[in-house]
Design a protein around this nucleic acid. Structure first.
Length: 725
DNA sequence: ATATAGAATCTTTTT
DNA sequence: GATTCTATAT
């Protein structure tokens, strides 16, 4: 058999990974080492050489983009569609399992998916229904708590509160939230995974069926898996099926949202007979860039250990520019890009990376001023826009009347005279009789529990939804969407309330929703999943919220956070804001684990560059209204000096000793109290520390102090009684 | 039900 | 500084 098309283009370690027998493997794939290529070729090898039917392969990724890219490349390599193969995101595949086995999973057939925004509303309702003050129990925090527990595989019932009142209350909120979701027939993102894990764990026949089916499991970006996702994988793989995990511990930058770098570190223990392959040859960057990346990441402990190399040339040194302030930084970068363009290069080959989104503002205004086209990544996504979610909520409630999240969203939107008081009557009724809001509304009508005005309004709403539901029953998807927009009068509402500009824009988005529905081609590829078009479309909207912005056809400079740059590459890269406190971010500086994650982020950012890398920092920066004096990031000093060329070395990042051991940012203005940030102080109770920030003046000023024993605290100057040291 | 003012918040993000 | 939420008035 001719396997040359599969293995010829591979280097030694890649080939080793691709052609390996049926044992589990951990492929440590450094940045730019051909990670996707190995996954794709491995699957082709399994199908063509090992004669595994596509049916027997499960390949998991994190994003829809990665999944569709993988499928596309596999089919290209095979020259035929790989039908029956399961390729998708964790959430997409878990969703599929739940649709297939909704009964065993204890879900209604028409269950809907909550996105984070819907989830937050639901958490708010849970808190309110417990009569808790949402000042004291911030919904965001509760949402975070619930998701964190679910990501660990924990239900409210599993949590021991150990007599801790706060914890007890959080568990209560979690419990109530579970009840409300069940009653509404909705599941959140984490629930998709947890529920499907429980589904196969509690149904031995099902588990056996899938374990026998999926003889090979492959996982991309393994370092980003959380506890729940890894448990899900291991359960599906069982003891016999090999797991092919590809990842890079040095690129683990999502610990803050539950990713467990430990998973990749423990893989070899969990699969004792597994093989380890390291792919260290880089096909992207110059050796200068790689040497810098290697040197930086070497400062991290507990790595699996990897060192990138290339056959490419040295290339230009890394350029370091110390800007006077953030405006100077932006115009320096703009100037460099102008030069790049004058050399005949494309703007879209240049990228500006930064730590936090707030930094994009100055870049944007500078680029607008100079007339340089640019594109900012991230931000609002299509299906998350308010007007789109409104229309979807109408659609959802026609599918499932008990969907309380949708009910609350649209019951008085556009306004139809149903006020807070009426709604809260319905909520109380729903709570005491264990009904959905829709059921409560109907009951209140039957038993005349409302005053006349409210009664008429509610009646009108109920009739509206029922009629809408009938009307669209016989229509095709895009007509259904159009009808909903028509009947709901959403367009008029927005136009009236938000004026020409904004309202018109919302209207256009609603039109866009109709065209999205027209071009939505749902092919029921899974004969065991029986979804109508509308449900499939609603699922699609929740699970694939769409790109934050369409690809512009114009030649644009790319601006994005370092996080969203992962997986991309650009010939010319600028990394801005290399100041202590900004990057590494203040909140990460004092914890070793988090500092290492910041360093990995820097490693990711650096390895995006192919040919030329610029690093900039500002000595002075306006941030949130105050002017901060920053000192160069400690990361700059981790780059070997000989790889760097300082462009305007009037404040030498190397020779200037970093005298301030802590925050390194200080407010310029001396506050009237005689203290300023950077001062070393002593506090009677908390001990020694250093002032990081001062907000306000005199005795009423709020000061943030980093104490060596108790960490960072906010104190009021008048009460703190600080002593200078 | 909306308009306005004051307060609070400001790291990273996919599903 | 900019935006988004919340309380209060009309």
């Amino acid at each position: 058999m001719d396997v040359s098309h599969i293995i010829d283009s591979l280097n030694e370690p890649q080939r080793e990974a691709v052609t390996c027998g049926p044992s589990s493997q951990l492929v440590l794939a450094g940045a730019g080492s051909g990670k996707t290529r190995v996954l794709v070729h491995r699957i082709a090898w399994l199908i063509e050489v090992e004669q595994i039917p596509p049916f027997g392969i499960l390949a998991v990724t994190f994003t829809n983009k990665a999944a569709s890219e993988m499928r596309g490349r596999i089919e290209e390599l095979l020259g035929t569609p790989a039908g029956g193969m399961w390729v998708g995101t964790f959430h997409g595949l878990a969703h599929r399992l739940l649709r297939r086995h909704w009964q065993e999973a204890g879900l209604p057939q028409q269950f809907q998916i909550l996105d984070s925004d819907d989830q937050l509303r639901m958490v708010k309702r849970s808190i309110r229904s417990l009569d808790l003050d949402d000042k004291q129990w911030p919904p965001k925090q509760s949402q975070w708590y619930i998701n964190a527990r679910k990501d660990e595989g924990m239900r409210a019932a599993h949590i021991e509160d150990m007599g801790d009142a706060t914890l007890q209350q959080l568990v209560n909120i979690y419990k109530t939230y579970e009840t409300l979701c069940k009653r509404a027939g909705v599941v959140d993102f984490a629930e998709l995974l947890l529920r499907s894990l429980e589904l196969i764990r509690n149904n031995p026949e099902l588990l056996q069926h899938y374990q026998q089916r999926f003889r090979h499991i492959l996982i991309d970006e393994f370092q980003d898996t959380n506890e729940l996702q890894y448990a899900w994988l291991r359960l599906l793989a069982g003891t016999k099926n090999p797991v092919f995990a590809v990842g890079d511990d040095d690129q683990s930058i999502y610990g803050w949202r539950g990713a467990k770098i430990e998973n990749i570190q423990n893989f070899s223990k969990d699969y004792p007979n597994s093989r380890l392959v390291k792919m260290e040859q880089n096909y992207r960057s110059t050796s200068t860039i790689l040497n810098a990346a290697n040197a930086i990441i070497a400062n991290n402990s507990s790595r699996l250990g990897k060192s990138l190399w290339t056959e490419d040339e040295h290339g230009d040194p890394i350029k370091l520019y110390s800007a006077f302030n953030e405006i100077d930084e932006a115009s320096f970068i703009a100037g460099q890009i102008q030069r790049w363009v004058e050399l005949g290069k494309r703007r879209k080959d240049a990228a500006i990376l930064y730590r936090s989104n707030a930094q994009s503002r100055v870049f944007e205004s500078t680029f607008i001023e100079q007339g340089i086209p640019y594109q900012v990544y991230g931000g609002q996504r299509f299906f998350e826009r308010a007007e789109i979610k409104d229309a979807l909520a109408y659609l959802r409630i026609t599918v499932n009347r008990d969907d309380d999240t949708s009910f609350e969203r649209i019951v008085n939107h556009p306004p139809r005279g149903i006020g807070e008081k009426t709604i809260s009557t319905l909520r109380d009724l729903a709570r005491s009789e264990n009904l959905s809001l829709w059921e409560a509304a109907n009951k209140s009508l039957q038993h005349s529990l409302l005053n006349n005005r409210a009664k008429t309004a509610i009646e009108k709403f109920v009739v509206l939804i029922n009629e809408l539901s009938n009307e669209i029953d016989s229509l095709v998807l895009n007509e259904q969407v159009g009808q909903v927009i028509e009947t709901s009068c959403l367009k008029d509402h927005y136009l009236k309330r938000e004026g020409e500009e904004k309202g018109k824009n919302r209207g256009e988005n609603l039109d866009e929703l109709v065209s999205a529905a027209s071009s939505f081609n749902y092919k029921p590829e899974d004969e065991h999943v029986n979804m109508d078009f509308l449900s499939a479309f609603l699922t699609h909207a929740a699970l694939e919220a769409g790109n934050a912005q369409g690809d512009s056809d114009e030649d644009c400079v790319q601006m994005m956070t370092m996080h969203s740059a992962k997986g991309l590459e650009f010939p010319l890269v600028f990394i801005g804001g290399l100041e202590e406190g900004l990057f590494p971010h203040q909140n990460s500086i004092n914890e070793e684990g988090r500092l290492e994650e910041e360093r990995r982020l820097f490693y990711v950012a650096i390895t995006r560059a192919r040919k030329q890398l610029f690093i900039t920092y500002a000595e002075q920066r306006q941030l949130y209204g105050n002017t901060l004096l920053g000192s160069p990031s400690q990361f700059i000093r981790e780059i070997p000096k000989e790889l760097i060329e300082e462009i305007r070395p009037h404040m030498n990042a190397y020779s200037a000793p970093n005298t301030r051991a802590y925050g390194n940012t200080r407010v310029v203005e001396e506050s009237a109290s005689g203290f300023s940030s950077g001062d070393y102080i002593h506090h009677e109770k908390f001990g020694d520390g250093v002032i990081i920030t001062i907000e306000g003046n005199g005795q009423s000023a709020r000061v943030q102090i980093n104490f060596s024993n108790v960490g960072s605290k906010w104190l009021v100057m008048g009460y703190a009684n600080l002593q200078k040291r």
